[in-house]
Simulated assay, not measured.
Amino acid sequence: MNPDRKKQQTRPGNRLLPSPLPLWGLAGASFKAEHLNAILADGSMRGFFEVHAENYMGAGGPPHRSLERIRREHPLSLHGVCMSIGGPQPLDQAHLRRFRALVQRYEPELVSEHLAWSTHQSIFFNDLLPLPYTKSTLDLVCSHIDHMQEAIGRRILLENPSTYVAFSSSTLGETDFLRAVVQRTGCGLLLDINNVFVSATNHGNSALDYLASFPLDSVGEIHLAGHAEQTDDEGELLLIDSHDGPVADAVWKLYATIILRSGPLPTLIEWDSKIPDWPILRAEAAAAQVILDRALDGNGMAEHAA
């Protein structure tokens, strides 16, 4: 774990960017508008909330009124899902302007996007689609990240994907690809441990081996979520990154292992469909907070929280 992460800069303009350290040691939850009254009645939660940027790109109305209430009392993480960082076309300038306006309006502690693509010409796909890990893809992704960071004036965190297919044309492993992106753009990483478990299971690989090669020094946030179990056409187990249930035991075990290595990185519980009542989501965040607190209390980790 590198406590000097806050000194990292973007390449374009060499601008010093905010640090993720204000959320160090905290667990958070996805903010859902239907939970607003329960959250307010609960009093201030110790942790933070994360929202999908695309849900707040209108100018006003109930979504913004709800988010403004939350932002007064809690730190915020802004998570983009539609920038299409890996898409073959230039970034959508209208979308980028709306994203920048949200960053300026709410001043989130963390800003993130996905290593994926979701657009082709004028078509938008409601999925985060995988990429071949090649030199040409690396050049494209780095160019888009440079553009986004320069436009919003912030360092972003790039999330590792959940995948169901692999490309025979790939010449780089995923962790090598992510490490190269960080080195070239100055961005950070968002480590989604559920995505790691889903992808490793689907491809018959080891999640522990993947995490052993992951550049943890560049991680500014962790995501945890639930997944669904299905079978493929050949009757083999297929995991879907569904975000519609509690975090699986196997994912909790991986998370605890990573926190021992990395220290108590900000951790977000994602739950995006089949939304439960607020106490259930709060309990998931509390379970993550217990693991973070153990890391803060032991092994000298508390010194990094200052």
Rank of each mutant, 00 (worst) to 15 (best):
D192A: 02
V182C: 04
L216N: 04
H223N: 10
L216P: 00
G186A: 01
L191S: 07
R184W: 02
L189A: 00
L211D: 13
S218Y: 06
R184F: 00
L191M: 06
N205Q: 15
I193K: 08
A225G: 01
F214M: 11
N195H: 11
G220N: 04
T185I: 04
S218A: 15
Y210I: 07
G188F: 09
A200C: 15
A207Y: 09
G188T: 07
S218R: 08
N194Y: 03
I193R: 06
G188M: 10
D192P: 03
C187L: 01
N194P: 05
N205C: 14
L211W: 03
N194L: 02
L189G: 00
L211A: 06
I222N: 05
V196N: 05
L191R: 01
S213M: 13
F197H: 15
A225N: 09
H223I: 07
G204P: 00
G204M: 05
L216K: 05
L189K: 00
I222E: 08
V196R: 03
A225P: 02
R184G: 00
I222F: 12
I222Q: 07
S213W: 00
T185D: 02
S199I: 05
R184D: 04
C187A: 03
V196T: 11
C187W: 02
G220Q: 04
A207G: 12
A225C: 08
A212G: 12
F197E: 13
G226V: 03
N205H: 15
I193Y: 12
V196K: 03
L211R: 14
A207Q: 11
I193Q: 11
S206W: 11
G186I: 01
A225I: 10
V196L: 09
G186M: 01
G226S: 02
